[in-house]
Design a binder for these strands. Structure first.
Length: 525
RNA sequence: GGCCCCGUCGUCUAGCGGUCUAGGACUCCGGCCUUUCACGCCGGCAACACGGGUUCGAGUCCCGUCGGGGUCACCA
């Protein structure tokens, strides 16, 4: 039997980081055993814009390299695969048949209660501190009864006729043997009066129809499992294996990570740093921040500011799973090879922005120079610092800047921290505080800069080693400390107090730019 | 509140009765390197929630307490 797993996003427009982790585990498990990973769209409750709401989710998966064998097409349109359609909204006939069978088997009944009647019973139970058990007062046992209710103007939903004694036992690949009392289960509604069907029914039917062998999902579904087993058994289905993953917890806390609590997380120092780093990239781009999606709880965030998908994946992999006591770097292939459900943790893991950053750092260091150029280019273009298509000089300039930058570029968008290499000399911005501190305040700065300028004009070749030597000779000659000239020089040619290595910077800018900029800086004084 | 789950450094984790005076990683704190920044290098702080058992021996097994969380829809 070939392994088949699934991820069933509901088209909300958001791809939650916890959801990605669930999808990742499903994907890994399928890939590892040469099975299939299916994407099914849970849109039983959605009405409009499914395609549009699906787009960011599919985009996210594509960006991360989590590919699906069956499911909607890349643009969120019609589904592809032998078990389709993969949109639940298009599968009503199949669900209807399942509901009929449950009804016929006496495992479900038509209930003609009004919502407020149910509500009342529920409140009574609550007041008496008892679990709510529906009286089945309005349950139609026969067609005659149903007619009576209908004649009285009532409409019906279909409810499961749950067992009221005994236990439901099943094995969970992460948690071991599970037991739930049937009597805790309510007579869940599986079909509404309008004929639309509810999640649990659809989910169980589809898992069967899609031949899903392993249901790997968030632990929130653990307590839903008995009712799903009830449905599956009632329909004569063989049960899939279950694996309930712990949820991803909020930074520094133990509650479930939620995209709606951004304001709260922003009070966490590390999380705030993560957010502001991304925000800085956006500001440099001049791009409007979409408050709905620009949120580190959603993958859009990482894609937008230039994280590496492999870093995000590797970090997520280790959130609730580990191979051993030391291995933590996994390539895509290595994670597929190493993953196992048995080593998934039972307890929730909290989202740690700093650890994510560490993975991103490490991953970024491993990116080959050429690829890094490609990573960074779109940001420069969007900022308007490089034209489209890029002039042929760009690749060379970029690889030199990138080489000099080393690991200062943490995410692709960080390239925007170095406008000095991309703007025209006369368009360079000077940091006012830096000018004050390094040029105006030290009385000798202007004199030293002028003297150095003369030497720079004549030095050959204009490259980092030569400039390094020149500057050190200059320092000896002037009997100053190197700090007295180098900071002033940096501000003069880059406009900023911090930057890449001084000599590499000079070399990349080239003699002409350096001299023009020094001139300009001297005029500021 | 009912039911269920979880509980090792701040965080992610290793640990499946003795090799644990508890290991690794991130963070943090010192120091080195250094023209800034970012790296790098060296060193350091830091945990078995608590209480009872079982056992020659418990982080590891059992029970209880406490703590945290999930779930209780005509949402998914």
């Amino acid at each position: 039997m070939t392994v088949r797993t699934r991820f069933a996003p509901s088209p909300t427009g958001f791809l939650h980081i916890g959801g990605v982790r669930t999808a990742l585990f499903n994907w890994l498990f399928a890939r590892q055993s040469g099975g299939q990973f299916v994407l099914r769209i849970d849109d039983t409750d959605q009405q409009r814009n499914v395609q549009q709401a699906l787009r960011p989710i599919l985009d996210g998966f594509q960006w991360l390299g989590i590919d699906w064998d069956e499911g909607p097409s890349l643009d969120g349109g019609d589904s592809e695969g032998p078990c389709g359609p993969y949109f639940q909204s298009q599968r009503s006939a199949i669900y209807q048949a399942a509901v009929e069978r449950l009804l016929q088997a006496g495992l479900a009944y038509r209930d003609f209660a009004k919502p407020e009647e149910i509500q009342e019973e529920r409140e009574v139970a609550q007041r008496e501190q008892q679990p709510f058990v529906y009286s089945r007062t309005w349950a139609a046992e026969t067609e005659e009864q149903a007619e009576e209710f209908r004649a009285a103007g009532r409409t019906s939903v279909v409810r499961l006729k749950m067992f009221r004694e005994g236990v439901c036992e099943f094995r969970d690949a992460v948690r071991g043997e599970m037991q739930f009392d049937w009597k805790q289960e309510q007579d869940h509604v599986i079909q509404r009066a309008d004929g639309s069907v509810l999640y649990h029914l659809a989910s169980v039917v589809d898992d069967y129809e899609f031949k899903i062998t392993h249901v790997i999902r968030a632990v929130e579904h653990l307590s839903n499992t008995p009712r799903q087993i009830f449905i599956a058994r009632g329909l004569g289905y063989a049960l899939p294996e279950f694996a309930h993953l712990p949820y991803v917890a909020e930074p520094g806390g133990s509650a479930k990570l939620s995209k709606r609590k951004l304001d709260k997380y922003l009070k966490n120092r590390e999380f705030k740093q993560l957010f502001e780093h991304g925000d800085a990239v956006l500001q440099r781009l001049g791009r409007e921040r979409n408050p709905e999606t620009f949120n580190p709880v959603l993958v859009d965030f990482y894609q937008e500011v230039g994280y590496l998908p492999t870093a995000v994946l590797n970090y997520l992999l280790l959130l609730g799973w580990s191979l051993d006591d030391k291995t933590e770097v996994f390539s895509r292939e290595a994670m597929i090879e190493a993953f196992s459900l048995a080593r998934v943790n039972k307890s929730p893991a909290s989202f740690d922005p700093q650890k994510l950053a560490a993975f991103q750092d490490r991953e970024m260091r491993g990116v080959p120079a050429k690829q890094k150029v490609a990573l960074v280019l779109p940001y420069l273009q969007e900022a308007g610092w490089v034209s489209r298509p890029p002039p042929c000089s760009t690749a060379d300039l970029l690889s030199r800047v990138l080489a000099a930058a080393g690991d200062r570029i943490k995410v692709a968008g960080d390239i925007l921290d170095y406008p000095e290499f991309f703007v025209q000399d006369d368009a360079l911005c000077y940091d006012e505080r830096a000018v004050e501190k390094r040029l105006r305040k030290p009385t000798e700065a202007a004199r030293l800069l002028s003297a150095l300028e003369v030497q720079l004009a004549g030095v050959e070749p204009f490259d980092a080693p030569t400039l390094d030597k020149l500057l050190h000779d200059f320092v000896a000659e002037q009997e100053i400390k190197i700090g007295q000239i180098i900071h002033a020089l940096r501000v003069a040619v880059t406009g900023k107090p911090v930057g890449l290595g001084m000599f590499e910077t000079l070399e990349i800018l080239g003699r002409d730019s350096c001299l023009v900029r020094m001139q300009h800086a001297l005029q500021l004084l």
